[in-house]
């Protein structure tokens, strides 16, 4: 069984648990996103059928909440906090520098599938402002100059 089939099986089990319960739509989608990293169209169809809601409702929820991704994201997701506390301490310059270093725009994934850059909302680590996250690693109290060194270990893939 391929990895994708295994993922789909897990998602089917989760859908079965909530069969016919429209109010659990977001929970099932969050579960699917955790498993696959995004919620592709065929999964949305399964969820719609299982929970007894229309596909347009599923798609509506998927596109309303910024956390749901319809396309796969990069291996490393770089989140640059643009909360107020980070912004006034210069996080825009850090975002600009990361984009420049990786030659990539915010919200986009690099063609090699390695990086996705996201301008994120406040992650609440304002004491460390300005802050970026790379997957689960947090880097704080940065200046734009620190960017190349921080990215270096991830560039190897």
């Amino acid at each position: 069984m391929s990895q994708r089939d295994e993922q789909l099986k897990l998602i089917d089990i989760e859908i079965e648990k909530h069969k016919g319960d429209a109010s659990s739509l977001m929970q099932v989608m969050q579960y699917s996103q955790d498993i696959m990293g995004h919620v592709p169209m065929d999964v949305q169809v399964r969820i719609a059928e299982g929970l007894g809601v229309t596909l347009s409702e599923v798609y509506g929820v998927a596109t309303f909440y910024s956390q749901f991704a319809l396309e796969p994201k990069g291996k490393y997701i770089i989140g640059v906090c643009l909360g107020t506390a980070c912004y006034v301490r210069g996080s825009q310059a850090i975002l600009d520098r990361i984009c420049e270093e990786l030659n990539l725009e915010p919200g986009k994934t690099s063609s090699d599938g390695l990086f996705t850059i996201e301008a994120t909302r406040c992650i609440g680590a304002c004491g460390l402002a300005p802050v970026i996250t790379i997957n689960d690693d947090v880097h704080g109290r940065l200046t734009a100059d620190d960017v190349p060194n921080i990215l270096k270990p991830y560039l190897r893939g």
């Binding site: 429209a22 109010s23 659990s24 739509l25 977001m26 929970q27 989608m29 969050q30 409702e57 929820v61 309303f64 909440y65 910024s66 956390q67 749901f68 909302r121």
Partner: peptide, 19 residues
């Protein structure tokens, strides 16, 4: 799931309902 407007009470309740 990352929607600021859900801090508004009626929006929040819609979100709990899965909408």
């Amino acid at each position: 799931a990352g929607a600021f407007v859900c801090g508004e009470e009626t929006a929040l309740m819609a979100s709990i309902e899965g909408k």
